[in-house]
Each structure stands twice: as C-alpha cells, then as structure tokens.
Amino acid sequence: MLELRLVQGGLLKKVLESLKDLVNDANFDCSASGFSLQAMDSSHVALVALLLRSEGFEHYRCDRNLSLGMNLNNMAKMLKCAANDDIVTIKADDASDSVTFMFESPNQDKIADFEMKLMDIDSEHLGIPEAEFQAIVRMPSAEFARICKDLSTIGDTVVISVTKEGVKFSTRGDIGTANIVCRQNPSIDKPEEATIIEMEEPVSLTFALRYMNSFTKATPLANQVTISLSADLPVVVEYRVAEMGYIRFYLAPKIEE
C-alpha cells in the first residue's frame, strides 16, 4: 500500500511539466526514503534523476518498495486537472495495475480522484557516482532559461566555458555567432539573483541546446539553477524542488571527431 500526500500539490504539477517532453515512460520508485525517478531520454543522451524525500510529504506511507510505471504525458494530463494550490495524494495498492491521484482544494470543498493505468516498463538503471567537478555555477534559473532560448535561435549547440572572469555561453550558426558572459555577482540583498562561480580549474564543454532548452522547463520549480561541469563528464543541471529534493538533468557533452 502506497499513500503519499503532498500539501504543495503544485510542485508535482511543475515536476511533471519539466519531465514530460524529455521522457515518455518511466518508473517512479517508491521506498521508505522517498519518491524517485531515474530515466533516460529516448536517444540515451540525457538522463534525469528526481528525488522527493519522504519528509517533504505531509503523509508518507510506503509499506514495501514499489515501482510505478507511468506514461509521463498521461500523468501530466491528469495533474493538469489539479489546481496549483490543491493538495495531491498519490495512492496505489501493491498488486494494482493502476494509480490514483486525489486532488483536494485547500478548504476541502472539492475532492477529485483520477485513476490512471500503470504500465510495465523495462528501464536501465544507471549508477551515478559522486563526481568532483571542475566548476560549479549557480545562477538565476530564469536567466539560464533566457540564455538557452536566445542562443537556440542562432545555433544548435552551446559552448559553456568557465574561467575566473565568469561563465560564457557561446554559439555559432549560419547567420553568425553569439557570446553571453555572466560575471560573478553575490547579490547579497537578493540571493535569488546571485551568480556564484566555484572554479577549481577552467573548463569548456559543448552541449546540444535542444536538451538544455528542455531542461529549462523546470525553471518554475526554483529561482536558482546549479550547473556542474567537468571535462569529459556529463553536465549536471540541478533544480531544487522546494526543501524536499531535486531534479537533476545529466547531458553527455558533444565531442569533436
């Protein structure tokens, strides 16, 4: 028996909106520690890892580990029917082939339940080791989204270079080139507007903008995004999910051949 009650139901709506274009079907793993997901995009170039810790739920009951295979587009459709301030409860029986989403309005005058069919999904689970990164950039998520959107009108790839001076996003396309440099800015008064660069050594990596733009669908979840870079490693683009967890996107770098 699984029963997870999330007062901030809007968070789950935002999580699904940020996942559904990248991944079609995925297993949500429920254990005593939390509600998590790990999935690759269909071309195996990007990976997403979601964790919502059990402590973040108002009520969290998970009698035994369960894997719920869901079509994320269909799940997003159902969650779209919840209001942003609704309380969302996810329920599933151990042997059931369906999951129920219950939406309660904050003053309890409207209660809805939506039942969705589960599916069997064969998924490859990857072990993600803790890595030391050469550079970690923390910046406003809206700024990062704007940069990715702007650059994708000019080129298909972005070169992210971190130096002492700041972080540079560059692209090139048929019509020309573009470079955007964001300098370190501690913004003590408004920490959500800060740009902080922790650099062990300079790093420069190339990525497909199509994926970066897809990751920025998570922008409504957090004011800040963390971009962790190391030569020859996938970039990690992380958005915090309130105080309860994170959504991390991993993207393999492009290599010159």
């Binding site: 071309s43 990976l47 993600i128 080791p129 190339t206 393999a252």
Partner: peptide
Amino acid sequence: VNQQRQITAFFSKS
C-alpha cells in the same frame, strides 16, 4: 563531425 555521446557510457549499470 560533432558527436553526442551516449549517457550510458558515463555511468555504471546498477
């Protein structure tokens, strides 16, 4: 040619 590498190449299968 610019090649995108598969993410599986970076992580161990668990």
